[in-house]
Nucleic acid binder design. Structure first.
Lengths: 189, 189
DNA sequence: GCCAATATGAACAGACCGGTACACACAGAG
DNA sequence: CTCTGTGTGTACCGGTCTGTTCATATTGGC
């Protein structure tokens, strides 16, 4: 029961769940895809729900590291980093494996608000909101919380429209709107 | 095989799917909930997918009638109607049965872009976009298509945040943003 | 009333669901 | 070598999935 074996299972399960959905993916499929035996799988994860929760934890970590890292790469100023969200989104949407937000999908399939999967999905969005709020505050915005809510809303809307193939460049559209909201606080540094 | 019986089945199935998800809801559950026999159910709908497609058609009709009707009630001007979207959203979010957008959830569970459920979900959003674009054009906006995309994105973002209980008043936040976008075209009539 | 056509319901079919029992391979200790 | 502990794979469990079969009510025409 090496610990990195567990991580490997979670990582592979993430891919399959992301591609095919949670309820639609059976444990037999995951066992086959990972090459491990069912017994081993259930040694690492007591139930399917436990596995899903581990998957969402990994996703939260990966997504946060990727997005926040990308934002920092793109700008040194808080306002510039907030704008960077939408540049980063555009890069994500262009990837062939893009298939929407995993947490939105998770909360869609586990709608009971008391369910750990729903709570975890909600917490992920809350975490993003907190980060945006902190940046907005650093940027000197009068109402940082309100701006953060607006930017998060743009981000979620863009992801939905991208996942549903409604408009060709939702990241670009969101970027334009965000620039309007942030214009007073963007120094051209 | 009275036609209104079929409508009744679709309507009831809509409620159950909306509450519990598509894959998570079995035909046995639907049969039990509707009181009809399984044979009758499969007389009306050849497969579960056929039923889901009928459900989404009804949802599309209901949602369109409700939203567009509410928009017209709220204002006589095109720009005012576009603002009305977000007032209407606020009313929707306050309803106890609110559980996010059914089409976003459907496309989450049926991600294959060639699947009729995905295509239908995408088409629903396209329909909304077209309506918004026409209104924006009537309002005399220079780039009606761009504004419509922005407003649709705000709507989708607000629904996601409402469904995931991230912020207390996403409709209000979206309304504020929309007012910024539409300010030049809103006459206080 | 009588017969044919149709709608219905319960039981079932075969596959798959999440989860478990258990026999076994293989390591290290003596 | 033997004994023992641990990780693994297979076969299986009861239940549920979508979809079907077939015998039985129910209806309409004459």
């Amino acid at each position: 029961m090496r610990p990195n074996k567990r991580d490997e299972l979670v990582s592979k399960a993430l891919d399959v769940f992301y591609r095919s959905g949670f309820h639609a993916t059976g444990m037999d499929t995951l066992v086959k895809e990972t090459g491990v035996s069912k017994t081993s799988m259930y040694k690492h994860f007591r139930t399917k729900d436990d596995l899903i929760i581990a998957v969402l934890q990994l996703r939260d970590e990966n997504f946060r590291n990727w997005l926040f890292g990308r934002m920092e790469d793109l700008s040194n100023t808080p306002a510039g980093q907030l704008i960077g969200v939408f540049t980063a989104l555009g890069e994500w949407f262009a990837k062939p494996e893009f298939a929407g937000c995993m947490f939105v999908k998770a909360s869609s399939e586990f709608q009971n608000h008391a369910h750990p999967v729903y709570r975890q999905s909600s917490a992920h969005k809350q975490m993003l909101l907190d980060h945006f709020t902190a940046l907005a505050q650093s940027a000197g915005v009068p109402d940082p919380a309100a701006l953060a809510r607006q930017l998060l809303m743009l981000k979620e809307g863009a992801i939905v429209l991208a996942a549903m193939s409604v408009t060709p460049d939702p990241a670009g559209d969101a970027l334009q709107t965000a620039q309007m909201l942030l214009q007073p606080y963007l120094k051209d540094s």
